[in-house]
Design a binder for these strands. Sequence first.
DNA 1: GTTAATATCGGCATTATACCGATGAATGTC
DNA 2: GACATTCATCGGTATAATGCCGATATTAAC
Lengths: 160, 160
Amino acid sequence: MDGSLEALDVIERQTAVLVRHFEMFYRRTDIHDDLDRAEYLLLRTLSEVGPQDINTLAAALGLDPSTAGRQVSALDRQGLVARAPAANDRRRSIITPTAAGLRRMEAVRTARAESLADLLGGWTEEELHTLGAMFTKYNGAVARKFLAGAAEEPVTAATR
Amino acid sequence: MDGSLEALDVIERQTAVLVRHFEMFYRRTDIHDDLDRAEYLLLRTLSEVGPQDINTLAAALGLDPSTAGRQVSALDRQGLVARAPAANDRRRSIITPTAAGLRRMEAVRTARAESLADLLGGWTEEELHTLGAMFTKYNGAVARKFLAGAAEEPVTAATR
DNA sequence: GTTAATATCGGCATTATACCGATGAATGTC
DNA sequence: GACATTCATCGGTATAATGCCGATATTAAC
């Protein structure tokens, strides 16, 4: 168990640093000038799992519904998502990304991938795969612990 | 290069999710009630590299000096750091963690490690090592790109 | 003596979030 | 049909963390 404790110490420290580094990345690039991180992830999620009502979306993202609603409103105002009552329950509002929303998201996605390619330019293909797999596995653990409906594969942990 | 592109896509997506997950972790646990993330990392850094002046500390953390100063002031008010003029240049203020500060930091560190132990309870020792190594390597890449004085091993990428 | 460096302090602003509550429309229950 | 519940919208209030800017005082360099 000594080795695991040591590894956990490393992970603990590196996650503290990771948070700072994500913040740095975010503030020092212009990638998220037109679509902030939260909006990007929301659009990304919608593009992957299809139209959702607010509550389902909020649960998938681990957000408070009022926060999800606020983000959706912001995107709606920008014409990046559309809202329509659900066919089987008009109290529910189904959120759909618009074509413009998907284009915006793709642009950010591309820019992010390019920035990462630059950052990790010296890594081997195997290392990149390992990093992706480790991030995915960690996210999966978090999702299972914190996200409702985690009996199935949580949305935010999906590999896609 | 196809495999690398695919891996970068995975990494790109998982980092977007990671940010949300760190936020969730932060808000849904009480670990950072007495010491917020930024303060924790600052104290942690000081404990590892020893007393620093504000500008060096800010550079190590990738922060604006006024932000670092703000954090130091907050910690000073809580008696968790001490400030003293440098012996060789009294314009400089050397920041030192107090015993109380180190104790506070250790308490948070322990709580974080325990929380991670719970989260990653089903992982093998090898997987934990790999995760730690990948986080470390990624942080190293970020530090080299964004942190000044990165000719030497950047502080925030250190394994310790 | 003049100029520059250093830190302190705070104004202003942004990002992302949670909790709370009021409101109105739609649905469910009896 | 009446009443209770659900759902989303909206916004108030607050927090955490940050950057850019500038004023100020002290100290160091020239």
